[in-house]
Design a binder for these strands. Structure first.
Length: 730
DNA sequence: ATAGGGTTAG
């Protein structure tokens, strides 16, 4: 039987594949004795537990290289050209081979001073293994697992604990067992048992580690119960207690509880430190109290605390989630200026922030910087990059990232597959999506498509109105056992709307109500979008759906199409509605409603809505003026809204001329690249054809993408000709 | 692994 020992030293814990091994530290070096069993299971015995003794019947020293090559030096930073991973892989690859006959230690071979060679099948080996902290830890870990699984009765818990620990657990045993637990009920019973057996009655550490279990299981009541018990029993809570409780409140979505206990810390003689500040900054951030979060950050800096990347990452996240992206960047710069090195999580948070901000160029810069600093990307990094490039419509970059992931043979998770598919949906990459979907289903990791997966695929087909393809995915989803959710139904309705199958829109809407799904603002936005594409004869049907989903919105839509309703009345109703809907959908609603007006040739009403949107700051700064150029900015506007804005701008320019004002040398319109998910042609293309219909002298700028320009000389006669009464046309 | 804070999706 082949038994191979590999003994080795490496200088850095980072070289140890943490998933497979634990390290035993000897001041500056880590020494392991690996035992490769034929089963390829690798164990090691920390050398400090093994007094050096040479036995005649030991297993063979083998480093995976020819026998005459000396054993790698043990104290060097790089063991003679063999990495730890290589050596381990080599050892297991070689294990079936018959080893050379047992031999005396070769002269010149470097042998670990404190290692012992043992036959792995001997009782001595198993005794050593049992004594090693590794296996003790494993046993305690198993105990945690069985405690999680056992019934929540004192008898069951006591039995499980006593079977492993007898009557003499150490405090360390208790800490390890509780720390690995997840079940709040049995953890509490286990805590009682440890409190009984370990005679330190007021042990704050045991409470703290049990609080962690409450956090893990998101059990706020359990956490607060334990904290109150501590206070009643006179067990002094410390900073660890409070930061655990605060972060527990945070994960339980109870920021006010975090604040409450944070403010009471002082009562118990605790002064916030770096970790409490960081936890609390996060709690304030998540409760939307950005000001308080920043106040704490400033306080922490004023106290000249050594803030670390965790705190900075938290602050960046707080800024990012309140859409203050410059704030996020500033903190990053501040961090670097203070000499704190960004780590993987800092980069991930920052990449995510710049993605949300739709600043793909900054995403690129930061990713390059990350590479330069030798920080390796993980799945979260790739997910952030894919989202950023998808959102910004950067297909080349998004696909490059996909290739990079594949080259690294990175094991993809469901989340990462779904992120890829969502990116494809953003960019309209149907073929790539199908390829990724097939790969996902074949993946050896067994990534089962979930409702996210199907939803993204349906979205891809919905964008182009490919009804039969979308329905095919829907069938596959139902066959896989998933009920349609609001996202799937939103996409489907979008698809039917695009294909002008209004009856199917109604049918899907009915089905949604039957499933007990309540339409949200986003869904209503989708119905409005469908309405703006619906032929006049069928408009009533769609408005019927909207009314059932949201009565106020439905009645506004009814008033909009009714020419008998005065603009003034309509305006009041519209303002009322827009003050009561969520911020994220305001622009989308406005775009749809203005499109509807334009389609129905109700330009006055479109102008009323545009005016309202500017007043409510739904659209910002559509017009700008400098001495050399006046501009119209219609990026992020729908076609109808953009045309309305153009209509208003032209009137304003004509009025300026009438008032004797002079035009600047250049006039420009910025449409942006305008690649919206649901429009196959960009805004620029469609807008340009409308400019031509209007005989407008604007031409695409050769050097500025998304800009149409004209000169004062060309614009003046055109505006004057349009102002003349016999040429009135919108 | 051996008491506390941070990152992946409409």
């Amino acid at each position: 039987m082949a038994s191979i020992h590999v003994s080795f030293t490496c200088s850095s814990p980072a070289a140890v594949p943490s998933a497979s091994f634990s390290s035993h530290q000897d001041r500056h070096h880590h020494t392991f004795l690996f035992t490769s069993f034929p089963s390829s299971q690798i164990l090691y015995i920390p050398f400090s537990l093994s007094p050096w003794r040479k036995k005649s019947k030991t297993a063979l020293i083998h480093d995976g290289r020819p026998a005459h090559v000396p054993f790698p030096p043990l104290r060097g930073p790089h063991p003679a050209g063999v990495s730890l991973q290589d050596a381990v892989a080599q050892a297991s690859a070689d294990s079936p081979a018959e080893p050379q006959a047992p031999q005396e230690q070769r002269p010149g071979a470097t042998v670990p001073k404190n290692s012992i060679w043992v036959n792995p099948n001997s009782p001595r080996a198993s005794r050593l293994q049992q004594q090693s902290s590794e296996s003790r830890y494993a046993r305690l870990g198993q105990l945690s697992g069985s405690l999680d699984a056992c019934g929540p009765s004192e008898a069951d818990v006591t039995e499980a604990l006593a079977a492993v620990l007898r009557d003499k657990p150490s405090e360390q045993d208790a800490v390890v067992v509780l720390n690995n637990m997840e079940n709040p009920e049995t953890a509490l019973l286990a805590l009682r048992w440890f409190q009984e057996k370990i005679r330190i009655k007021k042990d704050v550490i045991l409470y703290n580690v049990t609080l962690k279990v409450m956090r893990k299981s998101r059990n706020w009541d359990g956490a607060e119960f334990l904290l109150k018990e501590m206070l009643e029993r006179g067990v002094g809570p410390d900073n660890v207690t409070f930061s655990t409780v605060i972060s527990c409140a945070r994960v339980c979505n109870l920021p006010e509880k975090a604040v409450q206990w944070f403010e009471r810390m002082q009562e118990f003689g605790c002064k916030p430190d770096d970790v409490t500040y960081s936890a609390m900054i996060d709690a304030y951030g998540r409760s939307g109290n950005v000001d308080m979060a920043m106040k704490l950050y400033d306080q922490a800096r004023a106290e000249k605390r050594n803030l670390d990347p965790v705190t900075f990452s938290t602050v960046i996240k707080v800024y990012s989630s309140s859409n203050n992206f410059d704030g996020a960047l500033n903190v990053y710069e501040e961090m670097k200026a203070l000499g704190v090195k960004p780590n993987l999580i800092t980069y991930n948070t920052l990449l995510d922030a710049m993605g949300r901000a739709s600043r793909p160029w900054q995403v690129k810069t930061i990713y390059r910087e990350m590479e330069t600093n030798g920080v390796l990307p993980n799945r979260a990094t790739y997910a952030a990059l894919l989202r950023a490039y998808g959102k910004a419509r950067y297909p080349e970059d998004a696909l490059r990232i996909y290739r990079e992931m594949k080259e690294k043979v990175m094991e993809l998770t469901v989340v990462l597959y779904n992120t890829l598919l969502a990116m494809c949906a953003d960019l309209g990459l149907a073929d790539e999506a199908v390829e990724i979907f097939e790969e996902m289903k074949k993946s050896p990791e067994g990534c089962k498509p979930d409702s996210w997966t199907f939803s993204s695929l349906i979205t891809i087909y919905s964008c182009s109105g490919q009804v039969s393809e979308a329905e095919g995915i829907l069938d596959e989803m139902l066959a896989a056992g998933f009920e349609p959710n609001i996202f799937v139904l939103t996409s489907l309705i979008q698809c039917y709307g695009k294909a002008k199958q209004v009856d199917n829109v109604e049918r899907t809407f009915d089905r949604m109500l039957e499933l007990g799904i309540t339409p949200d603002d986003r869904f209503c936005g989708c119905l409005l979008n469908v309405l703006s594409q619906t032929p006049k004869e069928e408009v009533e049907k769609v408005i019927g759906c909207i009314s059932r989903a949201n009565e106020t919105l439905g009645s506004l839509a009814k008033q909009l199409i009714d020419e008998k309703v005065a603009d003034e009345i309509f305006k009041v109703k519209a303002e009322e509605l827009f003050k009561n809907i969520s911020k994220e959908v305001k622009k989308a609603y406005c775009n749809c409603l203005i499109d509807l007006c334009v389609n129905l040739n109700m330009m006055e009403r479109a102008c009323v809505l545009l005016d309202m949107a500017l007043k409510l700051e739904i659209y910002s700064a559509l017009q700008s003026k400098s001495s050399s150029q006046w501009s119209l900015h219609v990026r992020s506007l729908s076609l109808g809204a953009a045309l309305t804005a153009l209509h208003v701008w032209m009137k304003d320019l004509s009025r300026a001329l009438e008032n004797g004002e002079d035009l600047p040398p250049l006039l420009g319109i910025n449409t942006g690249h305008g690649k919206h998910r649901y429009s196959e042609k960009g805004l620029a293309t469609v807008f340009e054809s409308h400019l031509r219909e209007l005989n407008a002298p604007f031409h695409e700028a050769p050097d500025k993408v998304g800009w149409f320009l004209t000169t004062k000389v060309a614009a003046k006669p055109w505006l004057e000709s349009r102002s003349s009464p016999n040429m009135a046309a919108a």
